[in-house]
Write a protein that binds this DNA or RNA. Structure first.
Lengths: 142, 142
DNA sequence: CTAGGTGCAAAAGGTTTGCGGTTAA
DNA sequence: TTAACCGCAAACCTTTTGCACCTAG
């Protein structure tokens, strides 16, 4: 019987796969993202991290996030030109931002359907980002 | 027989529709966007504008762009957190950025197909943005 | 005439960088 | 031992703002 890998295992494997160190700060940042998946900005991650690791610096949070993004453990989420948000959901998905409450929701992108871009011949897509704005159900009815 | 409206007519109507003035700077910025539709940033628009209107300021370019976006004559294009680009193409479309040459291409979004987001009930989409990254045909083969 | 616009300079805000000291492996 | 990493502060860059002057309507 195969024991399913946790995301923490994934962290271990990925970090050690490169020439990367498993530092307390880096792991703490990653754990925070896994614990509360609400697409925080770097500053928000920093404020949360300080609660249990008061000495951590904003620069280190930025560095950690950059590393985690670089090795594929975390994705960046961009909404217009607002501060970058971070997301540990590695599945194919887009984002919906409520213009009233500000919450960011992951949205399922039905497999494949949204990859059928009508591009000219010879174009190769490496990444894509889909972001929606509007009103979420809660804000819509209140 | 109906004479088709030019985009310049569109400018006239739209600007005069609001409490907006038709200033030389504002029109110049708009004309530059219509003339070379390569998705320039505010700074690039500023540099181009100065060639024929040396006294124009960067702040005025920002203000003009904001006004044009506000009244719907121009759209903003966001690619990750790079400087905002501006686009006078009002048709439904997304963008493709070549990671090698940096060019931004408009891409057709087959009507309606990409609006069928599988959202939870009660969610209302007001705007959406689709951006792709990759290699364009030219860079791909060279 | 006057509300809206312009130009300049300063400030804001997110992110990056340089560097001396620290630490995981 | 040592290359990677941390924390701090300064720098960077895009965008916004405050304000005195100007101008389209």
């Amino acid at each position: 019987m195969k024991i399913s890998r946790t995301q923490s295992d994934h962290y271990d494997e990925t970090i050690r796969g490169g020439a990367l160190r498993d530092t307390p700060q880096r792991r703490h940042v990653y754990d925070l993202l896994l614990g509360k998946r609400d697409h925080p900005t770097a500053t928000e991650v920093f404020l949360r991290a300080k609660k249990t690791m008061p000495s951590i610096s904003l620069a280190t949070v930025y560095n950690s996030l950059e590393t985690l993004v670089g090795c594929g453990l975390v994705k960046q989420v961009h909404v217009d030109r607002e501060p970058t948000r971070f997301c540990p959901n590695l599945d194919e998905h887009g984002h919906f931002v409520c213009e009233k409450c500000g919450h960011v929701y992951d949205i399922d992108l039905a497999a494949g359907r949204h990859r059928q871009w009508s591009l000219p011949a010879g174009f190769i897509v490496s990444t894509h980002e889909i972001s929606l704005r509007g009103l979420c159900a809660d804000c819509n009815e209140n």
